[in-house]
């Protein structure tokens, strides 16, 4: 079943809101910040106070704040801020989950013993906490779910959203892709990848490590195909493994690939693309499992504008000039290190 994309809300290294993402696409230049002297992408949450009173946020961690911010912006984008949300489901895809809170909880346990472990940290570290915060703050009382399947989290979670809509369990799904960065993650990445984390991020250079840690939340209001779509439709979501059953790329679609400078995934893109032209936008938001949701947000904006935007960064193979889509479909392709892939086909 096709799903209509009715609204989009994003916060990431490029800024917050669809307008910020669109501006980044128009500029076409990589964006990267810095944390502790190391290149990194950080998501802003300052605007969340426009949607939720500050006092109500004091027990909510950074991961859930990004989640809430993305969700509220997506809802505002649809113009549905004041409607009944009793049949709106919430599905969140995340590769890492609440990293900062989980490590804070473990630290307090290790440093002071179980008696001094914060119950607030514990409750925020529960896997579905962010989805629950969204459901509570928005009174979205239909089911809520968080899906983690590392690099495949977004595709996997989209299949659940699609199923709920097909079953008629919900009228709409507030779908979000969220991941956060933290000091421990940056330390681990430095240990694993060394100078490969220094940037610049070169998604089209499949043979070298150039990933830079990122974070953010990309949200979508999804509905059944009979409903109007402001950003086009998700036609099909496919999960597979290229090693056992090679991916079949749609011949006429333009391609947005989730290549994000991870060498381990690069070989799969190289093998599957076979020299085919593609676009990649990781230099706008960085490298993290849920970044596939940001690729989908770029696809949504591209369908709205009927324009395939230039890939940021002029490295070999991946740069395209902006061009009209001519009603073509857009396919987002994301590989994991073991050849597993998620393919999301979209069209107007």
């Amino acid at each position: 079943m096709r799903m209509a994309i009715q609204g989009v809300g994003v916060t990431g290294g490029f800024g917050c809101g669809v307008d910020a993402l669109t501006s980044a696409l128009h500029r076409g230049e990589p964006i990267v910040g810095e944390v502790d002297g190391v290149p990194a992408y950080q998501a802003a949450i300052e605007g969340l106070g426009d949607f939720v009173p500050k006092r109500a946020l004091r027990r909510i961690d950074h991961f859930s704040k990004m989640t809430l911010f993305g969700a509220f912006m997506a809802l505002k984008d649809t113009g549905l801020s004041d409607v009944d949300r009793s049949r709106m489901g919430v599905v969140i895809a995340t590769g890492y989950g609440t990293l900062q809170t989980t490590f804070k909880f473990l630290d307090s346990y290790l440093d002071f013993g179980y008696a001094c472990s914060s119950p607030t940290h514990f409750s925020n570290s529960v896997h579905n906490a962010a989805a629950a915060h969204v459901s509570m703050q928005m009174q979205a009382t239909a089911p809520s779910l968080t899906v983690t399947q590392f690099e495949m989290s977004v595709s996997s979670a989209l299949l659940s959203a699609q199923q709920w809509l097909a079953e008629g369990r919900v009228d709409q799904v507030l779908f979000g892709a969220v991941d956060e960065s933290c000091e421990v993650l940056r330390y681990c990445r430095k240990e694993f990848f060394g100078d490969g984390e220094q940037g610049p991020l070169r998604p089209a250079n499949f043979s070298e490590q150039s990933a830079i840690a990122g974070e953010g939340a990309a949200f979508f209001v999804l509905a059944a195909e009979t409903q109007p779509a402001a950003y086009g439709y998700i036609d099909e979501v496919i999960l597979g493994n290229h090693a056992t059953c090679p991916v079949k790329l749609p011949i006429s679609d333009e391609l947005i690939v989730g290549a994000d400078g991870h060498q381990a995934c690069g070989q799969w893109y190289q093998e599957a693309l076979k020299g085919r032209e593609f676009a990649a936008y990781a230099p706008f938001y960085g490298s993290f499992p849920a970044a596939a949701g940001f690729d989908l947000a770029v696809a949504a904006v591209s369908l709205r504008d009927q324009t395939l935007y230039t890939s940021p960064g002029a490295d070999a193979g991946g740069r395209l000039l902006p061009r009209k889509l001519d009603q073509q479909g857009l396919t987002c392709l994301k590989f994991g290190g073991g050849g597993e892939y998620g393919l999301i086909r979209c069209s107007s």
Partner: peptide
């Protein structure tokens, strides 16, 4: 939380 704060 206050009990934990005082102990910690």
């Amino acid at each position: 939380e206050l009990v934990i704060i005082v102990q910690k």
